[in-house]
């Protein structure tokens, strides 16, 4: 089947039940635009679709449904795709705008994505923890992050089943090759919902405050192919550097200097191989689970590879 034919069939499917039009006729229109007038296929489809929408008076929103496919959240990698999802609502957030009815996270086995529904769509409310089949939602992209938008053509069906929500964690392995500034014993702003790290006793938002101590490592874990920036929180730091927040405070108190803590940590972790698992946050991997790699990796496969080259 030709490309044009395939697109014509897609369009025909979208209009099925709405307009009395043959695949051939659609194909002809597409061909004319693409071959004769050198219009790109996307634009040609859009134009042909508009033509029939005008001609038949069909609601554009109702149309789009024809081509939506059941997908997993992890497969979403394009903007403005119409999809069907079976998801669990894992989080509901406070909407920041009056036009938004609900905003939060939905998840399936492949991971989680943000969802938004709008007041104007007048959809039933989703409940946290419930599982739904959402038909006809549209994907959206912002700075490389994908989300899904519910709209007034979306149908919501609550399912009486449980689904396992996969995590979006990444796992990286490599040697810890650098510890960045801002590691060790730090102070955070104590204001509610503000956990900013203080610089010289000042919070960027709240000015001079009495900080609360915390322990963390900002490090680079490098496997010789990629360098990943990793943040170890207090628990992960205690785990890898064998130092507790209390010990770190005592140590800094004795030395009248907090930098001794970072130095101590450096001695423990630099040059050590780790396997780190956790979610990504911006360019950082947050170390939820850390394992020091002490077993020697398999040499047999490497030997075979070297000998057979």
């Amino acid at each position: 089947m030709t490309d044009v034919r395939q697109h014509a069939e897609d369009l025909h499917e979208q209009f099925s039940g709405h307009a009395d039009v043959s695949v051939d006729e659609i194909e002809e229109r597409l061909e004319r635009l693409v071959d004769e007038f050198k219009v790109p296929m996307d634009e040609a489809k859009r134009s042909v679709r508009s033509h029939y929408v005008d001609e038949t008076g069909v609601d554009r929103d109702e149309l789009a449904g024809g081509s939506s496919d059941e997908v997993e959240l992890g497969d979403i990698d394009q903007d403005e795709q119409w999809v069907d999802l079976t998801v669990k609502v894992t989080q509901l957030w406070e909407p920041r705008s009056d036009s938004i009815a609900q905003v939060g996270l939905v998840g399936d086995e492949s991971g989680t994505k943000k969802f938004v529904s709008f007041e104007t769509s007048e959809l039933p409310e989703l409940e946290e923890g419930a599982v739904y089949r959402l038909s006809n939602v549209v994907t959206d992209e912002y700075e490389g992050q994908y989300s899904v938008k519910l709209n007034r053509t979306t149908t919501i069906e609550e399912l009486d089943e449980e689904i396992e929500v996969g995590d979006d964690d990444v796992t990286i392995e490599g040697a810890l090759v650098d510890i960045q500034s801002g590691s060790g014993l730090i102070k955070r702003c104590p204001e509610e919902d503000c956990t900013r790290v203080l610089q010289n006793g000042r919070c960027a938002e709240h000015g001079e405050v009495e900080g609360t101590f915390d322990l963390r490592i900002k490090a680079v874990v490098d496997d010789g192919v990629d360098a990943h920036e990793v943040i170890f929180n207090e628990a992960a730091t205690e785990d890898v550097a064998d130092i507790s927040l209390e010990e770190a405070k005592d140590m800094a108190m004795d030395a009248l200097d907090t930098t001794v803590v970072a130095d101590e940590i450096r001695d423990e972790v630099m040059g050590v191989y780790y396997r780190v698992t956790g979610p990504t946050f911006g360019r950082y991997v947050l170390a939820d689970d850390v394992e020091e790699l002490t077993e020697r990796p398999d040499t047999e496969s490497t030997l075979i590879r070297a000998r057979s080259m």
Partner: peptide, 9 residues
Amino acid sequence: ATRDRWVVE
């Protein structure tokens, strides 16, 4: 162990 891992890597 770290040294051995480096050699293989």
